[in-house]
Design a protein around this nucleic acid. Structure first.
Lengths: 100, 100
DNA sequence: TATTCATATCGATAAATCTCGATTTATCGA
DNA sequence: TCGATAAATCGAGATTTATCGATATGAATA
C-alpha cells in the first residue's frame, strides 16, 4: 500500500543535495562511520550538513525527502535519525522503468 | 560515448509536461495516429501542444528534453520530428538503478 | 517574390524553489 | 528549573523556472 507519488519523487531527487543525501544513506558505514550513535538507528540529521548547506536548509531538504516517502525518521531523545525507505525507492525505480 | 548527465536528465523529467511528452512518444501509433506524416520520421513538434501549453512553451520544453539528450530531432521540410533517444534513456535508468 | 506554415527565440511577468539567519520547539542533563 | 543541544519553522531575499504573446527564422508554395 501507500502508493508512491512519482511526480513528487522526481522533483525530490532532481536536486543535487537531496540526491546526494539519498546516495550517502545507501552506505551509512561508508560515509557516517564517525557518528557517535549506532548506525542501526539511522543517520542523524546533523550529519547531512556536510553537503555545505545551512542547518535550516538541510532540514528543509530532509523534509522534502520525507514528504516524498523516500526516507523515514525515528526520534531518539533529542536526535532524529533518517533512513532510506527502500520499499518506496524500489517501487519508484520499477515504476520509472516501466513508465519512462 | 556521449555520457549521460543524470542531474540534467532528472531536472528534465521532473516536469509533468516533459515527462508526459516522453511517455507519449513511447507509443507513437497509440497517441499520434492522426499525424499526417509517417510516424517513422518521429512525432511532429506541433503534436505536443495537446499538453495544453502554448506553442512557444512546448518548444521550450522540447528543447530542454533535447539538451538533456532524451530526444533527437530530424528536420524534414518545414517540420521537425522528435524521437526518443532510447540509448540515453536506457543508460539513465541503468545509472539511476545502480546509483540511487 | 510574397505569402503561408512550422518552429525557435525574445522579452516580460508570474510562480516556484532555494537559501539563509533568527526564532521556536523539544529533549536532555546538571 | 535552567542552560545546552538538536531540529523544525518562520520570514525574507535571491535565483530559477514556467509561461505567454509577439516576433524572428526557415522552408514550402503560389
Amino acid at each position: 500500500m501507500n502508493a508512491i507519488n512519482p511526480d513528487e519523487i522526481l522533483k525530490a531527487i532532481a536536486h543535487p543535495a537531496r540526491l546526494q543525501i539519498l546516495v550517502w544513506m545507501k552506505e551509512p558505514e561508508q560515509h557516517f562511520s564517525e557518528q557517535l550513535h549506532p548506525l542501526d538507528l539511522g543517520v542523524c540529521a546533523s550529519q547531512f550538513e556536510r553537503c555545505g548547506l545551512s542547518q535550516s536548509t538541510v532540514s528543509t531538504h530532509l523534509a522534502t525527502l520525507q514528504r516524498a516517502g523516500l526516507v523515514t525518521t525515528q526520534r531518539v531523545g533529542q536526535w532524529i535519525f533518517y533512513r532510506r525507505n527502500e520499499e518506496t525507492i524500489a517501487a519508484f525505480l520499477q515504476h520509472l522503468k516501466t513508465t519512462l
